[in-house]
Simulated scan of single mutants.
Amino acid sequence: MLGEDPDQNSTDVLFDLLSDARRRHLWYCLESATADVLSVDELARLIEEREPQTNDAEPPQHGHLAHELYHVHLPKFDEVGLAEFDAGELTVRPDSVPPLETVFDAETGLPVGESD
């Protein structure tokens, strides 16, 4: 599920990956992508569209979000095998990102295949 290295398939890795709201938005954007390759800027725009805006908060600045994706979030997705992140080309190739609904067992709340 999360790459080919069995050590990467731990519950902790999955929960760490999904512990951040931006990474959950990124997961959805990669899962629903129809293109084989996306730019970091394109992903930033897609995430901006998904993030809820409140009257109190300023909208995220596009450059800041792209910077955060580049340095923080995309390397994590690359590390666990969900995306190929090319830092030099500023592109991302989604690698069979499954729908989140299929990742967790509805009864236990644990990743599919994991047990207590």
Results as ranks from 00 to 15, higher is better:
1 M>R: 15
1 M>E: 14
3 G>E: 12
5 D>A: 04
5 D>Y: 03
8 Q>G: 10
9 N>Q: 13
9 N>W: 09
14 L>Y: 14
14 L>H: 15
15 F>H: 10
15 F>A: 02
20 D>N: 13
24 R>S: 13
24 R>V: 04
26 L>I: 09
26 L>W: 12
26 L>K: 12
31 E>L: 00
34 T>Y: 09
35 A>S: 10
38 L>H: 14
40 V>T: 10
41 D>L: 01
43 L>P: 07
43 L>Y: 11
45 R>Y: 06
46 L>K: 14
52 P>Q: 12
53 Q>R: 15
56 D>I: 01
57 A>Y: 04
58 E>Y: 07
60 P>L: 05
64 H>G: 02
66 A>S: 07
69 L>N: 01
71 H>D: 04
73 H>G: 01
74 L>T: 07
75 P>F: 05
75 P>E: 10
76 K>T: 06
78 D>A: 02
78 D>E: 10
79 E>G: 07
81 G>E: 11
82 L>Y: 14
84 E>V: 04
84 E>H: 02
87 A>S: 01
89 E>G: 07
89 E>Y: 03
91 T>H: 11
93 R>P: 01
96 S>N: 14
96 S>K: 06
99 P>D: 13
102 T>Q: 08
104 F>D: 03
106 A>N: 05
112 V>A: 15
113 G>K: 02
113 G>H: 02
115 S>F: 12
116 D>T: 03
116 D>Y: 02
